[in-house]
C-alpha cells in the first residue's frame, strides 16, 4: 500500500515539479501517465528514496520514505529511466551483482538468480554478454534483478521507452506475471501501455495529479462514450452535447453522446470533411482530462462548415 499526501517538489532553480500530489494506491500495477516534463520521474524518484521532497509525505506499507528510509529500501527496488546494461557483464552477472548490493547472503544468491532468470526466460542466455541481447531482453535483465531481490514494491520509470513493439509486448507479458506477487508502480507516456498493464491509472500534468482510477472510473469522468476526430482543418461550433478538445496531433476532437456523434458524423460526411469516429479510448480520456481550454474562435479558421 502506497500513500502520498500533499507531495510537493520545488527544485533549486524554482521549477515546481510536483504540486500537492495526493493519492492512495492498493492495486497491483499502478501507472502514472503524463507527458514529458509532467513530473513523473520526480514522483518516482521521491517514492524510491532517490530524491527528497520539498514537502508532503510518502509512505510505503506504512513506512515513511524520508524518516524510515533504511526500512523502505529493504522492501523496494527501482529501475531508473534509461538504465543501461553493462556490456562487460552477463545477465547472471547483473543479477548476482544486484543481490550482493542488497546484502543478500552469498549462499542464497545462486538460487534466487537462477529462479528469476528462469522465470523471465533469460536462463538460456545467462552467460551471454548483455551487449549481444535484444533491447527487450536487456530490459528483462533489469526486471530479473528486481524480481530476484524479493522486493515487495518495484518502481519502473518509463520501462519501454525506445523498445520496438515486439520487445515491448515481451516486457508487458513479464510485468503482468510479476504483478501476481509484487506491487508494481510504473510511469509511462504511452497511453497504450497504461491501458494494457495497469489496474489503476493516474494522470499527471504540470506536477498535479489530474485524475486517478481504474480505466472504467476514468472513462466515467469523460461522461461521453464516443469520440470524433476531425482530420480536416475546419471551423466548428460547439456540439449540442459534449465537448471539443485538442488531440495528440493537434486535431480537434469532439467527445459526445452516441446520438450526437451520429448527427455530427452525418454532417461531416455531407460536407466531405475527413474524420474518424470511435468509442472513447484512454487517449481521448487523457486529452479530455489534461485539456487546455479551447476558445470557440480557435476551433478552426480555414473553412466554416456548419
Amino acid at each position: 500500500m502506497i500513500g502520498i499526501a500533499r507531495l510537493t517538489k520545488r527544485y533549486e532553480d524554482g521549477t515546481k515539479a510536483l504540486d500537492g500530489v495526493t493519492l492512495r494506491l492498493d492495486k497491483r500495477i499502478t501507472t502514472i501517465l503524463g507527458r514529458n516534463g509532467a513530473g513523473k520521474t520526480t514522483l518516482i524518484r521521491i517514492m524510491s528514496t532517490q530524491l527528497l521532497p520539498s514537502s508532503g509525505t510518502v509512505t510505503i506499507n506504512g513506512l515513511d520514505v524520508v524518516k524510515d528510509v533504511g526500512m523502505v529500501r529493504d522492501i523496494i527496488s527501482s529501475i531508473p529511466q534509461e538504465m543501461k546494461v553493462m556490456g562487460i557483464a552477463t545477465p547472471y552477472d547483473h543479477v548476482e551483482m544486484y543481490l550482493n548490493a542488497r546484502g543478500i547472503p552469498p549462499d542464497e544468491i545462486g538460487a534466487l538468480a537462477e529462479k528469476a532468470l528462469k522465470d523471465l526466460e533469460l536462463w538460456r542466455v545467462r552467460d551471454k554478454s548483455t551487449a549481444d541481447l535484444s533491447g527487450g531482453m536487456r530490459r528483462k535483465v533489469f526486471v530479473a534483478m528486481a524480481l530476484a531481490s524479493k522486493a515487495e514494491v518495484i518502481f519502473l520509470d518509463e520501462p519501454t521507452t525506445g523498445l520496438d513493439p515486439i520487445s515491448r509486448d515481451e516486457l508487458w507479458k513479464t510485468l503482468r506475471e510479476l504483478k501476481r506477487e509484487r506491487f508494481i508502480f510504473l510511469t509511462t507516456h504511452y497511453l497504450q501501455e497504461a491501458e494494457a498493464l495497469a489496474d489503476k491509472i493516474g494522470i499527471l500534468e504540470d506536477g498535479k495529479l489530474k485524475a486517478i482510477g481504474t480505466i472504467d472510473e476514468l472513462r466515467a469522468k469523460v461522461r461521453y462514450p464516443y469520440s470524433i476526430k476531425v482530420l480536416s482543418d475546419v471551423r466548428m461550433e460547439k456540439p449540442e452535447k459534449g465537448e471539443i478538445i485538442k488531440g495528440i496531433d493537434g486535431h480537434l476532437q469532439i467527445v459526445t453522446t452516441e446520438a450526437e456523434a451520429n448527427r455530427i458524423s452525418r454532417k461531416l460526411i455531407d460536407k466531405r470533411v475527413r474524420f474518424s469516429m470511435n468509442p472513447i479510448t484512454l487517449e481521448d480520456i487523457f486529452y479530455f482530462i489534461v485539456k487546455k481550454p479551447i476558445e470557440e474562435e480557435n476551433y478552426g479558421d480555414e473553412e466554416e462548415w456548419w
Binding site: P80, M86, R102
Partner: peptide
C-alpha cells in the same frame, strides 16, 4: 544509471 538503482537499495 546504476547508482540510482543502488541508492534505492539497502
Amino acid at each position: 544509471k546504476l547508482q540510482d538503482m543502488i541508492v534505492s537499495s539497502p
